[in-house]
Amino acid sequence: MPTIVSVDDSTVPGEGSSRLLLLVSSDNKHIVVEEDIMSRSRFISKQVEGFEATSQRHAILLPFSSFVLNKVIEYCSHYRGYYLLEDDPDAAPPGRSPVREWDQEFLDVDRNMLLRIIKAAHYLEIKSLVGSCARAIADMIRGKTTEEMREILGVENDFTPEEEHSPSSKCTG
């Protein structure tokens, strides 16, 4: 669960057309962002609903770095006002994640960053971003042999000899 702390009114700039939220990253960076931008996040939306119940302003502490948080905000800013089916809580989930040209450019980052973004997107419940990250990671391993996948992701073969030689592991379709 995130930690929610009360903040002084002066911490948050005045309200414009959209209310402002204060997000605090794990490296203690304070980032002010318009609520509209972050409305794609189910997690943030639920937090804001909670604020309204108590009529207090709060900061939302998030368990990832400002670097990652800024990437997520960049994504949400780009799609501000855009309808994305995956983020519609009332829509049936799409069969598979669509490929969006902008997302491919946006996610052209190193593997570790990509994994951090998908974790953050999962935490913030931004399904469209989770889907795009998952596709980007899947693209790394698509069509690769088991050995190639290990090499790409730095995974060691940790099977015991018995597991490795079990009959079902021989099935490759």
């Binding site: 690769k144 088991t146 996948m149 290990r150 995974v155 073969n157 099977f159 490759t172």
Partner: peptide, 12 residues
């Protein structure tokens, strides 16, 4: 299903 077998052989 062939792909998932390959994936399942990467690590425990």
């Amino acid at each position: 299903s062939g792909s998932i077998v390959r994936l399942s052989l990467v690590c425990h």
